[in-house]
Design a protein around this nucleic acid. Structure first.
Length: 332
RNA sequence: GGACAGGUGGCUGAGCGGUCAAAAGCAGCAGACUGUAAAUCUGCCGGCCCUUGCGGUCUACGGAGGUUCGAAUCCUCCCCUGUCCA
């Protein structure tokens, strides 16, 4: 399978369609937000026309209010990969959520998923006492994890505590058991890394285009449909937190000027692109291309490289996973 | 023309005689990441230097002077901006 990584607005989707057309493949998404139905404009989903008849999978498979985790994603994606292999079609994975890709390729530790009740309780503790208090709880149950997780990082502290409580074992010891990665697939990774300045310009133009395409209306409609079944003033979870939506909603309600909403979304997107770069840089065995995925010159470079790579590369995803896990241990 | 208010680091904005290279926020830069990850969190953030330290040094709070041992902070003049009155 092919994997295309890179930050937002680098032209991953366009490259995926191009490669699917050239090599006879189908696109599989690994973007955590494009998974959600109704979140179209702000997540940069390709329109049916732009997909040019290429099947796109794992898009629009979750309802906005539904909880969907990295583990859920990995299961769905693996099923899809097996399906495509049986069909004899080349899977082309594209997306921006590094955690989801890594979860698919390397797996998660064997352990419990999330428990809403427990999380609610822990959150209440953090609220009533303090987040540092919560972290001190973790330090008692699992000093190793506590040392790794910053006291103010409540989200990660809660997950660690959740695992400790549910398994009655330290989270760190659960992680030490290792993980079971994807078997039977060879991942060829392509990374897009265009010039920073040019990327920023693209991000700015793209955000503006999203607002012009009706992002404010989309955000309002999504929120209102959600509001019917929820009491929260503005949902702060799931896809509602995704870039542009809180800003577009605020603008739609007149709490923020349209110009400010655009500016804030642009800045947030730039920061997001930075986090993606930081994450993907550590992804192993990525062949990086210095340009945009919709650039014909880059597309040709990728095709040429693939012609050589498919002959030489013999490593499977599992092997890549092992070396990656090894390198992560040696780095710490 | 007159009366107020104000001019502070890329931006917003606090400071109103020493502990100020100047709070805070934003933006920017760097990083972490094993179950909502477009999330969550961390570090740096005037220049130069070094023994990287509540270290040294230079340049900085509109401009020019002045008062003072010492000024972003007080005084004088000038320039600019906003609001109001003519």
């Amino acid at each position: 399978m092919l994997v295309i990584v890179g930050s937002t607005a680098t032209g991953k989707s366009a490259l995926a369609v191009f490669l699917a057309e050239s090599l006879g493949g189908e696109v599989v998404n690994f973007d955590s937000m494009q998974l959600y139905r109704g979140f179209n404009i702000g997540t940069g989903k390709l329109s049916p026309g732009e997909r040019r008849g290429i099947p796109h999978h794992l898009l629009d498979i979750v309802d906005p209010g539904q909880v969907f985790t990295a583990g859920d994603y990995a299961r769905e994606a693996e099923r899809m990969l097996v399906f495509l292999r049986e069909k004899g079609s080349l899977p082309i994975l594209v997306g921006g959520t590094g955690l989801y890709l890594r979860t698919l390729l390397l797996g998660l530790f064997e352990g419990p998923g999330r428990s809403e009740e427990l999380r609610a309780r822990l959150k209440r503790v953090a609220h009533r006492r303090s987040r540092e208090f919560l972290h001190r709880m973790l330090r008692r149950m699992d000093p190793q994890s506590a040392a790794r997780i910053h006291p103010r990082d409540t989200q990660k502290t809660i997950r660690a505590l959740e695992v400790c409580v549910l398994t009655r074992r330290p989270f760190s010891s659960m992680l030490a058991q290792g993980r079971a990665g994807l078997q039977g697939f060879r991942a060829i990774k392509i990374g897009l890394n265009p010039d920073r300045e040019e990327l920023n310009r693209r991000i700015e133009a793209r955000v503006e285009a999203m607002f012009n395409a009706g992002l404010m209306d989309e955000a309002r409609a999504l929120f209102e449909s959600r509001a019917l079944s929820s009491h929260s003033e503005s949902p702060r979870e799931g896809p509602f937190t995704s870039l542009g939506y809180p800003q577009a909603l605020a603008a739609a309600r007149g709490e923020l000027s349209r110009e400010d909403a655009i500016r804030e979304t642009q800045a947030a997107t730039r920061r997001y692109a930075k986090r993606q770069r930081t994450w993907f840089r550590r992804e192993l065995d990525v062949n990086w291309f210095a340009g945009f995925g919709d650039d014909p010159a880059i597309q040709r470079e990728v095709i040429d490289w693939l012609a050589g790579a498919s002959l030489n590369s013999r490593s499977t995803a599992a092997e890549v996973g092992r070396t990656m896990a090894g390198s992560m241990i040696s780095e710490t």
